[in-house]
Computed example of a mutant assay.
Amino acid sequence: MMWGYGPNMGMMGWGYGYGFGLLHMIIWLVILAAIVAGVVWLVRITAQPGGHQFSARRSPGLQVLEERYARGEINRDEYLQKKQDISG
């Protein structure tokens, strides 16, 4: 038995060969890609108006209606009627 270095020899003669090293490299690249994809996904959902993807999206018409009600341009009854009209 030869104790040394070579394509299939490690430091102590217990080498795994090139294929096992390549497999480890591919596994780590897949893990790294998954981490990067996760970070990108988190950045995108937190950058959306409303804070996160799972919040109910509000219609622009409803937002304008709420602003008009808050400014006192319309009364409560008109607000509730228009809100019901917009919501369906």
Rank of each mutant, 00 (worst) to 15 (best):
A34D: 02
I74S: 07
V30C: 05
L62M: 08
R68M: 10
H52C: 02
G38M: 04
N8D: 12
Y18F: 07
Q84F: 00
G72P: 13
G17Y: 01
S87K: 15
G17T: 03
Q81E: 05
I45R: 06
M2A: 15
I35C: 04
G72M: 09
P60H: 13
E73C: 09
Q84Y: 00
Y79E: 00
E67N: 13
G72I: 12
F54I: 12
N75D: 11
E73L: 11
L62I: 03
M11S: 10
V43A: 14
I26K: 08
A37V: 10
L80K: 09
I45Q: 06
Y5T: 04
K82V: 03
G17D: 02
M12G: 12
I74W: 03
L65G: 02
Y5I: 03
L29N: 14
L29M: 14
L65Q: 01
A47L: 14
E67V: 12
M25Y: 11
P7K: 09
T46I: 04
Y18S: 12
G21K: 12
S55F: 09
G17I: 02
D85W: 06
G51C: 06
L32T: 08
K83V: 03
L80E: 11
Y5V: 04
I74V: 12
A47Q: 14
F20M: 12
I74N: 05
M12Q: 14
R58E: 15
G72Q: 11
Q63D: 15
W3T: 15
I27R: 01
K83A: 06
Q48I: 11
Q53C: 04
A33G: 14
G15S: 01
G4W: 06
Q81F: 03
T46V: 08
M11F: 10
G13M: 11
R58Y: 08
I26W: 11
G38V: 03
I74C: 07
E73T: 14
T46P: 03
M11P: 02
M9G: 05
F54H: 09
F20C: 07
D77V: 05
I31Q: 13
D77T: 06
G15N: 00
W3F: 15
N8S: 12
L80Y: 02
Q81W: 03
A34I: 00
W28R: 07
Q53T: 09
R76Y: 10
G17H: 01
R44K: 12
G51A: 06
A70S: 11
M1Q: 09
M12C: 14
N75H: 07
W28P: 01
L29E: 13
N75I: 00
Q81K: 05
L22R: 04
I74Q: 06
G72Y: 05
Q48P: 00
Y18G: 10
M12I: 13
A37C: 09
Y16T: 09
L65C: 01
Y79T: 00
Q63H: 13
L29A: 15
L23H: 11
R71G: 05
E73M: 11
F54G: 10
G61K: 14
K82I: 03
I35H: 02
A34W: 00
H52M: 02
Q84K: 08
G61M: 14
Q48T: 11
A70R: 08
V30Q: 02
P60M: 12
D85V: 05
A34M: 02
Y69I: 00
Q53Y: 04
Q63R: 13
L32E: 02
V40L: 13
K83R: 13
I45G: 01
K83I: 02
Q53N: 07
L42Y: 11
R58S: 14
P49V: 03
Y5D: 07
F20Q: 11
G17P: 00
V39A: 14
